[in-house]
Design a protein around this nucleic acid. Sequence first.
DNA 1: TCAACTGGTTGTGAAATGCAATCGGTTGGC
DNA 2: GCCAACCGATTGCATTTCACAACCAGTTGA
Lengths: 180, 180
Amino acid sequence: MDQRSGCPINLSLEVFGDKWSLIVIRDMMFGNRRHFNELLAESDEGIASNILADRLRRLTELGMVSRAPDPTHKQKVVYSLTEPAIQLVPVLAQLGAWGRRHLPASRELSVRAELLERGGPEFWDRFMDELREQHLGVPRPAGESSPFGELRAAYEAELARGDGETDDRPTATRHALQPG
Amino acid sequence: MDQRSGCPINLSLEVFGDKWSLIVIRDMMFGNRRHFNELLAESDEGIASNILADRLRRLTELGMVSRAPDPTHKQKVVYSLTEPAIQLVPVLAQLGAWGRRHLPASRELSVRAELLERGGPEFWDRFMDELREQHLGVPRPAGESSPFGELRAAYEAELARGDGETDDRPTATRHALQPG
DNA sequence: TCAACTGGTTGTGAAATGCAATCGGTTGGC
DNA sequence: GCCAACCGATTGCATTTCACAACCAGTTGA
């Protein structure tokens, strides 16, 4: 597929229209996973190493991810989000909000989506500032709070609240994917 | 792939993580294409008939699209968006806004994304009301304007403005996908 | 009667995916 | 120095999905 059309939605799908690219970006963004093995082993979805290598290479070529040697380990590589990828925050926020509402999302993993939705554009902006600091080395305004920390804290609090139940939403909603 | 994780973003990608599903929904939503052949032939991207048939069947099973016989033609089928799919408006708005900003989108096809972005959540809500009328038969508040018409008018005005040029954005931006 | 149109299906090859094994270099403990 | 563990991948292979072209039977309008 060379190029299908100049439609912004279509072009976005040509970049992210697969099952793994946005998962990788999500883990770098919300989990601050910057090394190959972090992305490989700590993924809830269990990405295969060749798929991960391919997506990192592809996203690097597309300018969504950059790579740099890790000073602490001669063979390690640090992957960072670029500015375009950081600006995916509103996209991922809306996608998470939609998925939380219409698909059988687990309670623990929904907390971040909920916080991101409630926070709105102001929260997204502060989060993007923090990502620019983490990934691009751009200093933030002093005293600015840490949306990344808030997201992680909310997730961990929910994890601690109860480990058994995976879904507290109505059965009809939970089974939306398997009708009949 | 049975189920990978309960993360809302992951679940959304299990539904829309391919190159065609959102294209089909986009055409139904912004182009009001409701018949198989409309989706097949008028698509800028040129979807194949078997892929379209597969996606319509899959989206129907997932509850994103519904199908009904067309009273005017015994063999015709009318496809409609369901409420969950209508609520994708904010997702598509953000995705379009991102693509317009970071990828080499054509001018004509960017107009709708721009209007959708400028309109913000209030515009999206009115647009969703109109989609509920078109696809679900839900009457709207009388006298409410037509975001669908505004989007189409803006696109057609841009089409009329000039047919030659396909991209008026800086070369550096236009070539973001093919880095040196 | 007949050509065009309806929503698809079939056949085939290419591409993506998933899984397991492997690789050469690096590090840290001893 | 030795060696096991770890590093970011790569390779090989089987399975699944995708894309494209050709084809199909029922329906319509002329």
